[in-house]
Structures are given as C-alpha cells and as structure tokens.
Write a protein that binds this DNA or RNA. Structure first.
Length: 570
RNA sequence: GAUUUGGUAGCUCAGCAGGUAGAGCACAUCCCUUUUAAGGAUGGGGUCCUGGGUUCGAAUCCCAGCCAGAUCACCA
C-alpha cells in the first residue's frame, strides 16, 4: 500500500524520536490523576485545585507560537487546552524536548501524558500549564481535522461509509458518537436493573440452533462439521426461554443477539439485539403495565424526564400509554371495519387501499400489511396495539373473550415497533395445530413461516404455566432514546459490504519475471499490481508508461529498452 | 432486489458548454512569538472509484461494474 506524503513524514518523525532515545510506544503505565471534565467543572470554583496534575490524551489541535504553544488533548471526558512554554519544558540549555520533540515530531493524533498545573489564560480559557510531557503513542495516520466555533462545525467528518467502516475515527473526531453509545449502555443497564430488582433470572440460551423458531424471519444457515449437521443462527430465543419456564423458573430474561437474513436499511441490521422476558402466572395485560413502567424508567434514567426529543418531535413515555386494538386502529386510520372480513374480502380491501398483496399472504399477513402501511407510521407517541388476529401470531394464546383473536400487543413509538408481547400459548394441542398452519403457509411460499419444533411441543406437553412473554428491540429503543436516524448510528460496527482489497503481487513474484528490483515499485505505481495484469499488458504501452513515470518522478534509473520490457512479460 | 443521487488531495468540497486539476483545513519550510475554526509568507501533495466506448483530446459525455446514501420491496 502506497503511503501518502503525510504518512511518510509521520514515519520519519517516529524514527527521529527513536534516534533521540524516546520510545514512541512505551510499555510502562502512565499515572493519571484527573480528567478534563473534572478540571473544567471544578477549577472555576476553586483556583487552588489541580496544581499538580497528571493527565493524558490525544492531541487534537496545536497552535505553535514560537517559544510558547497551545495544544488541546482529548481524554474520554472531553478536551482541555495545554500550554507549553519552551523554558518550562526545557529548564536547562538543551531545548530539544520543546524545539524538536514537541514542535517538530509530534502531530495531531499523537497520544501524550503531561504533568503540570491548571491556570486560566488571558483569553479566559482553563488550561494546563505543562511542566513535563511524555510521548505515549505516535500516530501514523492523519486524522480528519474537525473544527468548531460558536456551535458551527467546520469540515465535519460525515461520510457514513467512512464513519461506519472506521468507527474509531468517527469516535475520535465526533464526540457525540461516543455519547450515543454511553446512552445505549445506560439503557441496557437500566433495563437489567429493573428486571433484576424484580428477581427475574438473566440466562443464556443457544445462538446456534438446529431448528430456528420464535419469529417470522429467514435465518442464516451454517454447518457443524463434527456433527455433520445444519445449524441456524437464532432469529429469536423465545422457544428456549419458554422451555425454562416449563423447567420451573418463574421469570427469565436474556439480552440476545439475533440474526435475520433479510434486507438491510436504516432500520435493519443482519444482527440486532432483543431483550426477551417470560414471566409465569402473568398475562399480556400485566406485561403491558410492566413495559410502560420499564420504558418510562429508562427514559428517566437516561434523560431525567419522560420526554425525549426525536427528530422534530417530543415523545413522552409517561404512563399510561394509549391503547388501541388492532381492528380499532385500522378503523381509526382507514375508516374500514375489517373485523368480520375473510381472506378474500381482506385482499380486496388491501387492494383498494393500494397495498401490494401476493398469493402467499394469509389473513394475518394481510391485516399486518394494512396496519403497517396505514397505521404504524402515524403512531408517534408510545401506543399499545392489542388483540391481533390468530393467523399472524402462532405462539400467542387465544383471546379470553374475542373469537379469532389472540392476546398479543405491540408497542409502537415514532412510527416503529419497539416491542412485541403476548399471553403465551401453553395449550400443546393448539400449539401443534398452529405450527401445522405455519407449515401450510410455508408450502404456499412464505419463506418466513415457522417450522415445527417437536422438542418445544414436547416441553409444553409436560405443562407450562400461563406465562406472559415480551420481546423488546434494544436497537430500536436506543434509536429513539438517542435521537438517532438510523440503526447504524446505535451499533458500533454495523454490517457493511466487505472492503475489497486490491490484490498486489509481491516483489518476489515480479522479480521472478526478471524485472530489476528498482523497476518493481514503478510497475506497481503504473497500475500493474498483479503478475496477471502485467502479463496481459501491451508491451509498448507498458514501456511508454514506465518511461513516462521515470520522467515524471525524476527517477535516477536508466530507462529499460523495449526488448527488456518485452522479455519481462513474454 | 428496484429506482435514484453521489464517489476529485489526509478531511470537507468546488470544477463538468469536453482543452495542462482547484479552494479551505491538514502537511512542509520560514517569519511572528500567550493563541483559540492558529497570524503572515512560500511550497509539496491527485490512478479525478474501476474498466470499456465516443473524440484529435474525457474528471467532465455514453455504457458496464464496484462502494455508499436516500426511497421502495422483505423484515425488527
């Protein structure tokens, strides 16, 4: 890989440091006794504080003024300005540490540790007066330089491709990115402590599953060599957690990475996180109250208020949330009462609403399509949608009083589903029938239809207590709670197409063709990066390219003859 | 997967009636020497995503491909 001029200069600086006896990557720890944030928060109140500090961070800006300089370092808590004065850094005659090491050999991006005291400059900025500094890491790649004044950001590092592929750079130069991930972790911590306080047991269940189930989705398929068997990456952990309820726990939950082999966009990543919770002897009414309480608590823990700004809107998680049944909400937004319609009538209704339908769609999918198209995007404030048709919920218990429905709810927020829950079906005979109905859908071509899990059926034949179950999308919730426009913004490393590496042949491969060593870099520079594409080159063009580069780069190599060039690629 | 927009210096972007590649920041050298999106001067840096085509000549026009964004489809 060819280095840019700046990278070459940094490597030279690295060598210079080593020649001066400075290890640019020292092994010993560097004692830190304060953070940038603490200094900025407390120093204005008490100027006697921080008179002997030790702090480390990455150099983000430098303003060199001759025998005095300013720099800013960034630590995990923020940035603070440093003041370097030549005669303080170098008390004796030898001014190398300032003139050479600081001014010439350090760059933006390097990590240093400093000792000194805090003061306020004439410009009124809280600053560390450096008495001593130590190079902790020399950076070889130049960072994007993002500047800011009066809230206006200049040259922001915004290209999503680079931000996601090189998240570390994104995090260094866009501090708000680090903030989002701190909030995400706080969200998970808040949820976990809420559940632990209720004494539910956090568990782990298999990610590699011989039969995938618990959701309507296409799986990733893999193969286990020793067992010579197909395994799937889980699309949900529902069926395993219910087995644990059968086994006798009365409340289990898991933060589970699930994998679905489907489209990717700003709401979907192939791997994502759900929290699933199952509690025995409860029903979906109880679960709705629990979800409200839990999410309200999360909003309070993250923001100190139940109101969260998302885009242009404020979403208020204060209890109680609005509740609609599925039929009610469809009637509300379309004016059509679909409650008594059969599959044919629904299909017609969907068509008049200009919703695409196909042959594989059963009654459940049709209703879901109408809801997803006409209702879901309008539901901004957190809202529970309850009582789904039985066809679209093969794992939910039949409604206690309404024929053809199940006891299921979803919470919708900002136009997107954030959770899905139901009174779990514990009638093994009914469960088997529901699976069989799914198999029928599968035969019709529905690739997301569930498969029949005999072991799960066996488990609930032993008897599962009435149970309320919940799946809540952590990424979706994190998006809302951090005001993020896309799921990629709440995942450290969202899935991207692999970067394709340009194949470059080794020097030896070229040398074996009889090419003199001094010409090999020139050939690569000319764009002939593999032996194969060199071999297929027109020798006259190659000859011209090489002579052209020789002239352009003012190379002190004698030009090859056309016959020599021909002999290389013959 | 479909449609659409984009890919130019380390970063952010301009250039596109086809005629030798530009700016700001970053980098280098020098000056100034308590500054603050670093004050001045000078300079270096480019496979204009890749491959074809049209043309005397392509960063610019056409076709194909790669990567990304947006919208749509599937899905949480």
């Amino acid at each position: 890989m060819e280095l840019s001029e700046q990278e070459i200069i940094r490597r030279q600086s690295l060598e210079e440091l080593q020649k001066l006896g400075i290890n640019p990557y020292p092994a010993d720890l560097f004692e830190i006794n304060v953070s940038a944030k603490d200094i900025l928060a407390n120093f204005p109140n008490d100027k006697n504080l921080y008179q002997d500090i030790s702090i480390a961070g990455r150099i983000m800006t430098r303003r060199i003024m001759g025998n005095a300089s300013f720099a800013e370092i960034q630590d995990p808590t923020g940035r603070i300005q440093l003041y370097f004065k030549r005669d303080d850094i170098c008390q004796g005659e030898d001014k190398t540490m300032y003139n050479t090491v600081f001014k010439k050999l350090l760059d933006i991006g390097d990590i240093i540790g400093v000792n000194g005291f805090v003061f306020i400059t004439q410009m009124g900025e809280i600053t560390v007066h450096v008495k001593e500094f130590k190079v902790l890491c020399k950076s070889l790649k130049p960072l994007p330089v993002v500047k800011e004044k009066d809230g206006i950001t200049y040259d922001a590092f915004t290209d999503p491709e680079q931000r996601y592929r090189q998240r570390y750079v994104d995090m260094i130069v866009n501090p708000q990115v680090r903030e989002i991930f701190i909030k995400r972790t706080k969200l998970i911590n808040s949820m976990r402590s809420f559940l632990n306080e209720k004494e539910y047991l956090e568990v782990e269940t298999p990610i590699l599953q011989p039969i995938y189930g618990g959701a309507a989705a296409r799986p990733f398929k893999t193969h286990h060599n020793a067992l010579d068997t197909t395994l799937y990456l889980r699309i949900a952990n529902e069926l395993y957690l219910k087995r644990l309820i059968v086994g006798g726990y009365d409340g289990v939950y898991e933060f589970s990475k699930d994998f679905r082999n489907e489209g990717m966009d700003r709401f979907h990543n192939p791997e994502f996180t759900q929290m699933e919770l199952y509690v025995a002897y409860k029903d979906y009414e109880w679960m709705m109250n629990t979800v409200e309480e839990m999410v309200e608590q999360i909003a309070l823990d993250l923001h100190g208020t139940t109101e969260v700004k998302v885009g242009e809107n404020f979403i208020n998680f204060k209890r109680p949330w609005k509740r609609f049944t599925m039929y009610e909400v469809i009637q509300h937004y379309t004016g059509i009462d679909i409650s008594a319609m059969n599959e044919e009538q629904l299909k017609k209704t969907a068509c008049t609403l200009e919703i695409k339908v196909d042959e594989t769609m059963g009654r459940g999918k049709l209703i879901d399509a109408i809801f997803g198209e006409k209702c879901e995007p309008n539901l901004l404030q957190p809202t529970f949608i309850t009582d789904y048709p039985v066809e679209m919920s093969p794992l939910a218990k039949k409604h206690r009083s309404k024929e053809g429905l199940v006891e299921r709810f979803e919470a919708i927020c900002n136009g997107k589903e954030i959770c899905n829950a139901f009174s779990e079906l514990n009638d093994p005979v009914d469960q088997r029938k529901r699976f069989e109905a799914q198999l029928e859908l599968g035969k019709r071509g529905d690739e997301e239809a569930m498969v029949l899990d005999e072991d799960f059926l066996r488990a609930i034949e032993y008897g599962m207590p009435p149970t309320a179950g919940l799946g809540i999308g952590i990424d979706r919730l994190a998006m809302v709670m951090t005001n993020s426009q896309s799921i990629q913004d709440v995942l450290f490393f969202p899935q991207m197409r692999p970067e394709k590496k340009a194949a470059v042949a080794s020097t030896d491969e070229f040398a074996s063709l009889g090419i003199p060593a001094e010409w090999i870099p020139v050939i690569i520079k000319a764009g002939y990066t593999t032996v194969e594409n060199l071999k297929t080159a027109n020798p006259n063009k190659l000859f011209n390219d090489l002579c052209g580069l020789r002239k352009k780069l003012k190379l002190e190599i004698s030009a090859p003859t056309i016959d020599e060039v021909k002999s290389w690629i013959a």
